[in-house]
Design a protein around this nucleic acid. Structure first.
Lengths: 255, 255
DNA sequence: CGGCCTTTTGAATGACGTCAAAGAGTGTGG
DNA sequence: CCACACTCTTTGACGTCATTCAAAAGGCCG
């Protein structure tokens, strides 16, 4: 049931070139913990997709769910709109993250997925992935582990943040981004690049743009950050700033 | 690695009697969609646990994760405390729900699990479940589907609720409970029994007890509900009341 | 330079939390 | 059976935080 690339679809790759061993996201991907034989099996069913340029839609709410996507490079947001017309951003996803997880167990995606910058994906047909999980216990274990982490983040961490003031939530968000990038690129500077715009951050944090602006200024005044156009400089120690708030922003650090 | 029942542990059952076919929660359990041969296999590794009386702790935050639990009868809450000392309730669980899902992919549970009323559980050792999933595609599919629904609920639905006023959130919660019960017990009255106390509801909704009280009174004044001690009577039509709010409280109704 | 969009700033409104106190329900002991 | 203590729930007054509305300032691109 692997979708054949269609000639009029600009976003596909025959998959002949690269395999998982050469993938830059290898270390953060599902394949981290699985052996070579298994990777070779998996590689037959995956298909590289891209490039998706900034603002390009990867899938839409309501589209049939056929695949999961691993992000090779770039970043993605998932968003939808409530019946009242309020925009919601479910999550921001980066290199190595799984996209489309909210589609599992549903026939149709519950949100749009939109590229934030030039993005390459690795498409894993859903049923083929389930198949592979059956043959490779470690892969199944890794997949379940990721879903479990997402559930923890959704139920517990989200609730913990709900009662923080806007500036605290914002600071945690920035530190979270910092850690995500830090662990993947080895840059030592404390500048956090923002692939999404300020509007998206506001929506994600459940704030209006005005409130976000005020929260940013407040963090600047207290000397926690310096705010630039498309990046935020962390002035205080990310570790100590995160302390005092349990149970942690958490996705990806749970042990 | 199946835990042997310990003589000093009051909560276990040899598992000799009942099998999944006779279980009252069968229709809502993981086993809904799997065939008889598979159920027999699964049945060998499960162990019935109970009774947990109200307020009894099923597992504690920090305890090693070894099993998932399916709720046969009763109800459970998962809760933890933030570093600031604020209580958080992750979820309320009922007949057929999976308990311990936040433990998947982690070595230690991230929250306490506490019985709300007399509760019987069906214990599924984690690695045995993974094993079974490998042999029974439908079981794996069902499990993944459940995790996916939880993720949707956590990321999208939670965000959608964040900006509702207290009384709207409360009403949605009541309707959610109503549907949960309605779909399992066939009672036609509109009285929603509350196994948890009002404090827990307040915490779950992210409110103080005072705010919950005010929200209840407001719904009473508008004629939406009638508030009793341990139950709430729904006076308006659950369907139309839910309308106007996307994307739905959702867990269990996604298609 | 002028339109358009994003970001910032200010003042008013509203929702919920906090504090304080009273009322209701439950259990205990006289 | 009643008095008392204890807890949970309710109610009111007030403060805080974020939204809303309005408008000005800054960037970007024609």
């Amino acid at each position: 049931m692997l979708e054949q690339p269609r000639p009029n679809d600009p976003y596909w790759d025959s998959g002949t070139g690269e395999d998982c061993h050469e993938c830059g996201a290898r270390a953060f991907c599902l394949t981290t913990s699985i052996d070579d034989a298994c990777i070779r099996r998996l590689h037959k069913m995956i298909r590289k997709r891209g490039p998706y340029e900034a603002q390009r839609i990867i899938y839409r709410e309501g589209h049939p769910v056929r695949s999961l996507f691993a992000i090779q490079t770039g970043s993605v947001k998932t968003e939808t709109v409530t019946a009242e017309g309020r925009r919601i951003i479910g999550e921001f996803l980066f290199e190595g993250d799984l996209l489309g997880v909210e589609g599992i167990g549903s026939r149709h995606y519950a949100a749009d997925a939109v590229a934030l910058e030039e993005t390459w994906l690795c498409e894993l047909p859903m049923h083929a992935l389930e198949d592979a999980c059956r043959k490779a216990p470690e892969l199944q274990h890794e997949l379940l582990g990721r879903l479990g982490r997402l559930i923890r983040a959704g139920t517990l961490d989200t609730a913990a943040q709900q009662h923080m003031t806007a500036d605290k939530r914002l600071l945690r968000f920035i530190i979270h981004l910092y850690h995500r990038r830090q662990s993947k690129t080895q840059r030592s500077d404390r500048c956090v690049h923002l692939p999404m715009d300020k509007q998206d951050i506001a929506v994600y944090l459940g704030l209006t743009p005005e409130s976000l602006s005020r929260a940013l200024r407040k963090l600047e005044r207290t000397g926690a950050i310096r705010n630039h156009l498309r990046c935020i400089e962390l002035l205080l120690d990310p570790e100590e700033a995160a302390a005092g708030d349990a149970p942690g922003y958490g996705v990806g650090y749970g042990s």
